[in-house]
């Protein structure tokens, strides 16, 4: 099985450790992973902010970069949802018929990390070790667009040493929302404050999620308010072992 990593522009630029964690994890499970260097971004920022004409060439570029792979794995539920749910519609609405066909061909083979592990590779115990108290925030696009359900929690429960504590009102949005965080900064910050209060209330030292964009928003709120709760992407916890801890 040929697996390609779509690292996403946010991880590529700001959180390379998450990309490295996916590579390490998949190799440990016996799968090679390729990184097509022609990849850039899913175009979600442009699309969700109303700039569809800017998003279209990015979506078409995605389809060219990832053509021919059996599976594409993204350590971001939001970016995976953008590709799977929106690329085909965007390409059909604004693109030519041939690029639209290429986009529609690639989109269904894109998976968020927990989907790839549980559904495609059929593993829930990835042999990880992470001896910390962790709480998990299920990001909106993982829950309500990809419908990943409890896959990430099943993966976390199988991690040795990990003490998983439930996050109250977990399914509530954290307030990131892409450019929403800037355009409606006051509401966004109020949502983050409530989410962070719930996180702190759990007593966990680590906040985990499947999207670094949401974690960046929550982590930035946590450090600003003097908390030492760490934000760690799901991939990094799953890649962590006794020999090579995260």
């Amino acid at each position: 099985m040929r697996i390609a990593l779509f690292v996403t522009c946010v991880n590529d630029t700001l959180f390379p450790d998450t990309g490295r964690a996916v590579v390490r994890l998949l190799r440990r499970l016996g799968h090679d992973v390729e990184f097509p260097e022609a990849q850039t971004c899913c175009g979600q920022m442009h699309f969700n902010t109303g700039y569809r004409d800017q998003a279209l060439p990015i979506a078409e570029g995605f389809a060219r970069a990832f053509a021919g792979y059996d599976a594409v794995v993204a350590p971001s539920a939001s970016c995976a949802a953008m590709v799977r749910d929106w690329h085909p519609k965007l390409a059909a609405e604004r693109g030519g018929p041939r690029p639209a066909a290429a986009v529609a061909d690639v989109a269904p083979r894109v998976f968020e990390l927990s989907e790839l592990l549980v559904d495609v590779l059929g593993v829930t115990d990835v042999g990880a070790y992470y001896p910390h108290r962790v709480t998990y925030h299920p990001t909106c696009h993982s829950l309500r667009m990809l419908r990943v359900g409890d896959r990430p929690l099943r993966l976390l429960r199988a991690v040795r040493g990990l003490d998983l504590v439930e996050l109250p009102d977990a399914a509530e949005c954290c307030g990131f929302g892409g450019t929403f965080a800037l355009k409606n900064a006051d509401v966004s910050a109020a949502m983050a404050a409530d989410k962070v209060a719930n996180v702190r209330g759990t007593g966990a030292g680590t906040l985990c999620a499947a999207d670094n964009s949401c974690l960046m928003h929550l982590g930035g709120t946590l450090t600003r308010t003097g908390s030492d709760v760490r934000t760690v992407h799901l991939a990094e916890i799953l890649a962590s072992t006794e020999e090579d801890p995260a």
Binding site: V7, N11, D12, T13, L14, F15, P16, D17, G19, R20, F35, E37, A181, L182, K183, A185, A189, A192, M216, H217, G219, G220, T221, T223, R224
Partner: peptide, 18 residues
């Protein structure tokens, strides 16, 4: 500033993933 009024922002790493 709309971001940093209430949130810190991580600095870019020494090296991108690519």
């Amino acid at each position: 500033h709309a971001w940093t009024d209430t949130r810190d922002l991580p600095v870019p790493p020494r090296e991108s993933f690519r």
